[in-house]
Nucleic acid binder design. Structure first.
Lengths: 252, 252
DNA sequence: GCGCGCGCTTGACCTGGATCAGGGCACGAA
DNA sequence: TTCGTGCCCTGATCCAGGTCAAGCGCGCGC
């Protein structure tokens, strides 16, 4: 009942990625290298732009897609943060990942042809929707599109094994923080100061820790001078030390 | 020093997947649906067969590929069992997965263009080698090949998050056993009696448990009548109970 | 303003599984 | 045969992090 509250798409002005931002956004998006002109076939590029639909805003708590829905498209986050998660047989939520602007969601739905998880917006979210059948067809004509898809898919396989290893709470949290920092940095945002748009309990769930442990470790990191925390705003004051803590948790 | 012992490729008769088995093997392989004739373009099919190379036997402990090597191909396991693993900065091994006959390895190497892990044979292993550039080129002409690649990649993303959740030792081991059983079943082998070709310590490492815990849980499962263990040979005597234990750890 | 609820923190305690230590067994080399 | 050596099992102990309980602060609806 509370799932679809505020389901109406309010056509308010988009504060993150409005039309004026489009080119700038696309240049930082995971699909940017194929969406933007780069000497490729002009007509095929036109087709690519045709199959992209902008969607949103989604308000915090709204679903972009749900577990079991027919798979028809992958999405690039244009603005806001998306959480992917699934609910197990005992009703417990399991957070699979957080997706920042420029990142893709839905890639793990190709095989079962159904979305295998929920995608929930954590704040006001805007996305680009890529119809997958159309994209796959286009990929046969544009090797660049195909390659990019292969890359994105392959990348996600590696990422998924990040949270797998048996690492201490300190390592996990350090890796989480530098991971977020790196991803923001890659999109041109500050790599040392950012806002975590997810609740502590989501972070805890994602890292397979208790929310209490997340609190305690963040507090300790702060006491040790590694970070400064103000609610959901975090500043990395000693990124090198955090990176050292996280050294055994790989990213790309 | 002990890494490359018995490195010589003994040209002994292949007991698992010799030429006589080829058709039967291909029909159970992850790539079978594209390797075998199925009404697709005959000349393209011929090209696909041309780009497949058989390799092996690899003896237990030999590497099929190593971390950091240039990515040139993906592999289908024809016979034997392959372990993928990486070694972290502190020299500790981390087992990423086990790959049975019919399964693919190397898919996570596309993005970084280098193999991000080691692939080590656990027993006598035979593989089919698919040159990836050639495969990608072929995929632009054969939508079936492209689709199959997308499916395989997407599937691996899901699998990787299997061992991620915070589950008890019992759940993990139960999921591991029914997972192996299902994968053997899918390839036409017995789903209730099989041999684990990996050491207990590898299983433990893969499941993020101590080897001692694996021993103890297997012993308890045996005492509870769920399984029968004889060294590395395992029989599932109560698959339903195991499946129930593992219910919250998803597979495809 | 006031009360309520939720997100976050902190402290006290408990426990699942890691770690440490030791022993058995099978197999190959000397 | 005897000695390694690798793999596996088992018991005793320990500890990181989970669980439980309580309190705090802030935003929101009334």
């Amino acid at each position: 009942m509370s799932l679809d509250n505020r389901a109406g798409r309010i056509p308010e002005h988009n504060p993150v990625a409005d039309d004026g931002d489009e080119l700038r956004f696309c240049s930082t998006c995971a699909f940017g290298s194929v969406c933007l002109p780069q000497g490729v076939d002009k007509t095929a590029l036109h087709e690519l732009h045709c199959l992209v639909e902008h969607a949103g805003p989604f308000q915090a708590g709204e679903h972009i897609f749900r577990t079991g829905e027919h798979f028809g498209a992958i999405f690039a986050v244009r603005g806001g943060t998306v959480k992917t998660c699934l609910v197990d047989d005992d009703g417990r939520e399991q957070v699979l990942g957080f997706h920042l602007p420029g990142e893709m969601i839905g890639l793990n739905a190709i095989h079962p042809a159904k979305y295998p998880c929920d995608a929930v917006s954590l704040d006001t979210v805007y996305v680009c929707r890529f119809s997958f059948p159309a994209l796959a067809t286009l990929a046969t004509r544009m090797p660049g599109v195909q390659q990019q898809l292969f890359r994105l898919l392959s990348q996600d396989i590696g990422k998924a094994s990040l949270l797998a290893g048996d690492h201490s709470a300190d390592e996990r949290l350090a890796a989480f923080l530098v991971g977020i920092a790196d991803r923001y940095a890659a999109r041109g945002f500050s790599p040392t100061a950012f806002r975590l748009s997810m609740a502590r309990s989501d972070i805890a769930n994602y890292l397979r820790l208790a929310a209490e442990t997340v609190s305690r470790v963040l507090r300790r990191f702060q006491d040790q001078g590694l970070i400064a925390v103000d609610g959901r705003d975090v500043t990395l004051t000693d990124p090198a030390a955090l990176r050292h803590l996280a050294r055994n948790i790989v990213h790309d």
